[in-house]
Amino acid sequence: MPGVLAALDGGVDAWRAVQVAGCLPHAVDRLVPRLAEHLRRADLTGRRDEMSARAALRAMSALGDPSALPMIVETLLAAVRHEAWGITTSALQALTVLGSPGAVAQPVLAAIRPLTAAGTDHFVREAAVPALWSAGGDPREVTPLLYDLLESPIYYHRTTAAELLAEVGERAALPRLRELATSGGEWIEIAGAEAVWRLGGPPEAPLVLERLLRAWAKNGATANDVTDCLDRMGPAAAPALPQLRAELARPRRGGHMDTIENDESLQRTCRKLVERLATV
């Protein structure tokens, strides 16, 4: 911690410090003002400071302190002016985490709305729609945008749309989400299946389980996402017990990026599920 603070205060290796600041939530009161100052000093007109600015925004998001919101908004508006789309994307993602209806002024929402349109930068558009929902909270405004994203040829647009349609509670999307859960590749099918579960509940369990377990068997990297969804399904996930036990018995598991951290998280979730579901 002293090294991170010294780097942020002195500017020497600050670009390294911002990349770990989000892992130090016990020092949020000392880190957020320094991260804000780091963003104020960043040059958003070129690419030199882009990596560092985006890391600072991710750190603010991870720290979860609402006091960071004014600086996130300021950075977002400046990035849009300078057409710094990478920084714009990171600021929108941070706004999604920390924003809430009433906490963001109407001029900011007005700046976000054009970013949700087709034809804008792909990453910006994907980040803008959730930010508009988080900060605006109007399902009538965001739902048509989500239906548009659901038909996008870009797969991560469709996964984002599925997740948010479930969050918004758009039950009218269930037929399309069932289609999504049965075609389009493992990641899209998982997003569709989870959205179907969240909107449809237990009557959808057979379809949801079949698609989740199929995706997991086909691609081990999906294990964390699948087991997280199984965890949310409660007793309805009982048919997954054999696959959960088989995963724990493997000497080496899959999971995101094949990292130790994700493997340990996967093991914890699997053990919790086995213990819970074995008594169902």
Score class of each variant (00 low, 15 high):
residue 2 P to K: 11
residue 10 G to E: 04
residue 11 G to L: 11
residue 12 V to D: 08
residue 15 W to D: 13
residue 19 Q to V: 05
residue 20 V to N: 01
residue 28 V to K: 02
residue 38 H to C: 00
residue 44 L to W: 01
residue 44 L to N: 00
residue 45 T to G: 03
residue 49 D to E: 02
residue 50 E to Q: 06
residue 50 E to D: 00
residue 52 S to Q: 02
residue 58 R to N: 01
residue 58 R to W: 07
residue 61 S to T: 02
residue 61 S to H: 03
residue 67 S to Y: 00
residue 69 L to N: 00
residue 70 P to M: 07
residue 74 E to N: 03
residue 75 T to Y: 01
residue 95 L to A: 05
residue 99 G to V: 08
residue 100 S to K: 09
residue 104 V to E: 04
residue 106 Q to T: 08
residue 109 L to S: 12
residue 109 L to F: 03
residue 109 L to K: 10
residue 112 I to F: 06
residue 120 T to L: 07
residue 123 F to I: 00
residue 123 F to R: 12
residue 129 V to P: 02
residue 129 V to M: 01
residue 133 W to A: 08
residue 136 G to D: 08
residue 138 D to N: 15
residue 140 R to Y: 07
residue 140 R to K: 14
residue 141 E to I: 05
residue 142 V to S: 06
residue 143 T to G: 11
residue 149 L to C: 02
residue 150 L to C: 07
residue 153 P to H: 03
residue 155 Y to D: 09
residue 155 Y to W: 12
residue 156 Y to M: 11
residue 157 H to F: 09
residue 161 A to P: 01
residue 163 E to K: 09
residue 167 E to C: 05
residue 167 E to V: 10
residue 168 V to E: 05
residue 168 V to A: 06
residue 169 G to Y: 03
residue 177 L to K: 07
residue 179 E to I: 13
residue 187 W to N: 12
residue 189 E to D: 12
residue 193 A to E: 11
residue 199 L to P: 11
residue 200 G to T: 11
residue 201 G to V: 13
residue 205 A to C: 13
residue 208 V to W: 07
residue 209 L to W: 12
residue 209 L to K: 10
residue 213 L to T: 07
residue 213 L to K: 09
residue 218 K to T: 15
residue 219 N to M: 12
residue 229 C to T: 15
residue 230 L to Y: 07
residue 231 D to Q: 15
residue 233 M to R: 05
residue 235 P to D: 11
residue 242 P to G: 09
residue 246 A to S: 12
residue 247 E to T: 14
residue 250 R to V: 08
residue 252 R to H: 13
residue 255 G to M: 08
residue 259 T to H: 09
residue 261 E to K: 15
residue 263 D to L: 08
residue 266 L to I: 14
residue 268 R to F: 10
residue 269 T to N: 05
residue 270 C to E: 12
